[in-house]
Design a protein around this nucleic acid. Structure first.
Lengths: 249, 249
DNA sequence: GCTTACAAACTTGTATACAAGACTGTAAGC
DNA sequence: GCTTACAGTCTTGTATACAAGTTTGTAAGC
């Protein structure tokens, strides 16, 4: 794998995991090429790899876009995560002490980030818990799969999650680790199942998948004299800004 | 995704699943381009996607090769399959009758292929069982993951499996389906775990990963007068023939 | 004023040319 | 006879040029 292309791939994926790139963000080849100081060829390579991993999509001759999973795709992603993560906890025989220690430490960091109100890192940390779990209990292959899936569910949360319940999630993580420490992996698996179920249930899958939804509601009851106002009906995020204030141009 | 590139990707992946391409097979860009009637660009695209999926690897300026998983990678692949497939069986609440019917039919086809001695299709069918299961009980995302993993384990079996126990595998499948029919998903999961464990245990992970292993044994004890005989010490399969007799050039 | 047609700019899609490195075969030197 | 150096061939790596399609902005017509 190319170092440069791998960098782009990794950079984009981890930015998504950190919640620093919104779903629907347009990723122009030339812009990325300039940004990373490589040629379009490399960028395309990275994009195609990310497409295979289900993180971006290409719209013919319009550009690459961070995926905006549909409601069904969201359900699939959560079901898949449930299957794999509960499967992992149940397949494992025992949990080594050092794994427990590192997971506990991770939860502690989560809580700290929540208490200090560090919004930007907490989303990243909450997803990271699951990735760490896979890494500690499973293997590299499994970790990679979970990582890609977590990227998806992160994007899904950004699309459909009305209110973020960071505290609750972190508490769930704590309970799961506690069950693991008690040696009750079956309980840990059930808690994990419930945890992922809770996150999924917290979504409003009837909402967002198109950016005009909000507008439609807005002008559906009252105004209907003229037709739709001049709103760009493009692919949701016309100019790809970074929410965390990182300059991208 | 490009139709042409997707074809190449799909063609190679299903050929691997069917056991028609050996691990270590060299896949030259130009050769594939000629074969599929497309340009190298497209072939590269497909190859990079397959690389992301863990099916092929590129060796710098030498070519693309179907992966030859190491012993550790083999263990990872089997562990991952165990986690996911037992997780699936345990996550599912009930098994719809039509799913049961289609699985039973699949097992019947397996047995028939075994009894008629249809070697070429039986390897494919045995792997297909797991893919069908994921498709019937899970979702498309899960199926894709299982498919890629099955491709890996198929290659692993080709590398490390001294004797193929097709009958036993098919019998295992039958037992799993029976447990599902009885509504005992926990039993089904345990049987699946044992089944995958058996396949893994049937491997000789101390053997093959390099094609010279056989030679080394051959000349290590007795002959040591002259040095190594003139054997091409290339990357295992110098001219990529198709075992099932399909013309490739 | 509103719609529609057209043109210009922009973006990806694709092929091709060339560069860089790896392998093989041959010949020279010890 | 054996080793080593070298050249030729083959293969991928990379960039670039151009083709094709999409979007946006503008102006003409109703």
């Amino acid at each position: 794998m190319n170092p440069a292309a791998a960098n782009i791939e990794e950079a984009i994926l981890s930015a998504i995991l950190a919640g620093r790139i919104d779903p629907g963000t347009r990723l122009g080849e030339q812009k990325l090429a300039d940004l990373f100081g490589v040629s379009r060829t490399r960028v395309r390579e990275a994009m195609m790899r990310l497409e295979t991993r289900g993180v971006v999509q290409v719209s013919a001759r319009r550009g690459w876009y961070v995926v905006e999973p549909s409601a069904e795709e969201a359900r699939e992603a959560f079901q898949t995560r449930r299957v794999i993560e509960t499967g992992l906890l149940q397949a494992v025989r025992g949990v080594p002490p050092q794994v427990l220690a590192s997971l506990k430490e991770h939860v502690a960091i989560e809580r700290e980030a929540i208490q200090t109100g560090d919004v930007s890192s907490r989303a990243c940390l909450l997803g990271d818990f699951h990735i760490h779990l896979a890494d500690a209990l499973g293997n590299r292959l499994l970790t990679e799969i979970i990582r890609d899936l977590t990227a998806r569910t992160t994007l899904i949360s950004m699309l459909y999650q009305p209110t973020e319940k960071a505290e609750e999630s972190s508490h769930d993580h704590e309970d799961i680790v506690a069950a693991m420490e008690a040696g009750d992996l079956a309980l840990a698996a059930r808690l994990m199942d419930e945890h992922i179920g809770k996150v999924e249930a917290g979504l409003d899958l009837t909402a967002r998948p198109d950016p005009l939804a909000g507008l439609r509601e807005l002008l559906s009851p009252s105004t209907f004299a003229g037709n739709a106002p001049s709103v760009p009906h493009a692919h949701s995020h016309p100019h790809a800004h970074s929410p965390s204030g990182k300059p991208e141009d």
